[in-house]
Amino acid sequence: MIRFAQVTKRYESGHEALKSVSFVLDRQEMAFLIGRSGAGKSTLLKLITRVEKTTRGQLIVNDKNITRLSSRQIPFLRREIGVVFQDHKLLYDQTVFDNVALPLVVAGIGHREASRRVRAALDKVDLLNKERLYPIMLSGGEQQRVGIARAVVNRPVVLLADEPTGNLDPQLSDEIMDIFHQFNEFGVTVLIATHEHRHIDRLRKRVLELEQGRLIRGGEGMED
């Protein structure tokens, strides 16, 4: 589903954030991406959604080589990938319902079908009763669940999350991770960047570890 082949990312400043990273994440697999801050976790995720462009190497997502994607095609790549952000990135002047509906509106899906899917997504994160509220009225954990509902509403094949539990207490953090785990069991490929090793021990999933831009664990031809 996601294949990194000797991917290097060098920023214009000259900083090399990723150095020849190679790994394959299979369809329906779930993995944690760990490493200290600055190790390149966020950069790796940004390459997958083409927020950043690879400098060298090949990157295949959902059978498409995205190193050669034209800017016109980028929106369509992003519609196949659900992303959950640490800072939620919600629209605070719109209701929970409208926030979750946004990917469907953007993709031009009809109103009736969209409402049905939004409710299904909100149901999965247990927020169906709060669809008319504004994000600011919700707790941090609830806001993150809105972010997750928005990420999955378009039924993406890949779900990425960048420190999704960063600001939450352990109990809420576990709840969020369990939601990701559920989606994985429904068949979604999941890659989560986190610094909380607790989840790794608890959920026993594959681990990819970055250190100063190099993959030192979980990569191709490496033992776990």
Binding site: T49, V51, R72, P75, F76, L77, R78, R79, V83, K89, L90, L91, L102, P103, V106, A107, R150, N154
Partner: peptide, 16 residues
């Protein structure tokens, strides 16, 4: 600005 960034992140085309 923020809204436009988010729209782009979730796959909105430029024309949208």
């Amino acid at each position: 600005r923020d809204e436009i960034e988010i729209m782009k992140l979730i796959g909105a085309t430029d024309s949208f």
